[in-house]
Design a protein around this nucleic acid. Structure first.
Lengths: 142, 142
DNA sequence: GTTTTATATTTGTATATACAAATGATTGGT
DNA sequence: ACCAATCATTTGTATATACAAATATAAAAC
C-alpha cells in the first residue's frame, strides 16, 4: 500500500504526519532496549549531558511545550531516573545514578536510530530532507 | 527560537515530528470554519466524494489504523455528519444531508490549507519536499 | 516598598493516534 | 455441511502531545 496511492499524497498534512508516525515507530524500536520512549530518552540524554538543566531549556531543545515537559519529567522521576529541584520559579533537573548507569544503552539507542536512518535513506538523502523539513518547520513557526 | 538551534536539529525523529505538529496546527486553523479537526474533515470529504465507502478504504486513504478510523467515525456519527451501515463484516459510510450542506466550507478549508502551504513555501519547494517525505515514509513502511 | 507585570512551571482537561484483544462474518478445505 | 482460517471492524486501554488556566516567584514601575 504505497503512500503515493493515497488521494492526498501531495498534501503536506498527510505526508508530514504519516512520516512522523513512521519515524516515531522506528525510534521506539531503537529505544526499546532502554525501556522508555524516544521523547523520554532524548530528555534523559539532555539531563545527563547537562545536569541541572532547567525545564524550560528542555522544552526549547526538544521543541515541546512546557506542559509536555512536565509530564515527561513526572514519569522519569517516578522511574527514579531523574530528580527535579525547584528553586524559586525555576526547576533544575538532575539525573540519578540509575540514569547514569543507563547512559551506554541510551547512546546505543541514539546511534542505532541514526544508523537505521542512514541505512534506509542514505546519508545524502537523509540530510537533504531533514534540512528541508527544518526549513519548512521554521517557516511555520509563528 | 529557530528550529536549527536544537541539539537534535539533524535528527529525523525531531524534524519530522516538529514539522508534523506545526503542519497539524496550520491545518486545524484552516479547518476551524467547519468546526472539526483536519482528520475528521478529510475523512468526511472522502465519504462525500464516495458515499458508501468502506471503513477499510478510509483507513488506507487516510493512512490511519482501522481503530483510529472507528474513533473518527464514532465522533462524526455523533455529530450527525455521517452514518455507518454495517452489512456482513464490512461497514459502509454515508454522509448525511447535514454533511452535504457543509461541503462548500469543507472545500474552502482544503483550498485554504493548500493555499497557505503554497504561500509559505512556494509550489516548487512544497512539492519537492512532499515527494521526498513520501519516499522516506515508503521506505519506513514495513 | 508596594503594586503591577512578566516568567517558569504545573494542573486539569482534551485531541490524535495506536496496539492488542475481542467480535462477528465470510471463505476454503475436507 | 462443518470447522478452521481469514478478514473487517470494534473495544479497551495506552501513549504522545497540547491548550488554557492556575500557581508561584521574580523583576520592574512607580
Amino acid at each position: 500500500m504505497s503512500t503515493v496511492n493515497s488521494r492526498f499524497a501531495q498534501c503536506l498534512y498527510f505526508t508530514s504526519n504519516a512520516l512522523a508516525r513512521k519515524t516515531e515507530k522506528l525510534a521506539q524500536d531503537s529505544w526499546s532496549r532502554v525501556g522508555i520512549s524516544p521523547s523520554h530518552g532524548y530528555l534523559l540524554l539532555l539531563t545527563l549531558e547537562e545536569p541541572g538543566i532547567q525545564a524550560g531549556a528542555l522544552a526549547r531543545q526538544l521543541q515541546l511545550q512546557p506542559s509536555t515537559i512536565t509530564r515527561l519529567l513526572e514519569k522519569l522521576e517516578s522511574m527514579k531516573l531523574l530528580q527535579r529541584i525547584t528553586e524559586g520559579k525555576t526547576t533544575a533537573v538532575f539525573p540519578t545514578n540509575k540514569a547514569k548507569t543507563l547512559l551506554p544503552k541510551i547512546q546505543e539507542s541514539v546511534a542505532e536510530f541514526s544508523a537505521r536512518c542512514m541505512e534506509l535513506l542514505g546519508k545524502e538523502e537523509n540530510t537533504k530532507l531533514v534540512v528541508g523539513m527544518a526549513k519548512i518547520a521554521d517557516k511555520l513557526t509563528p
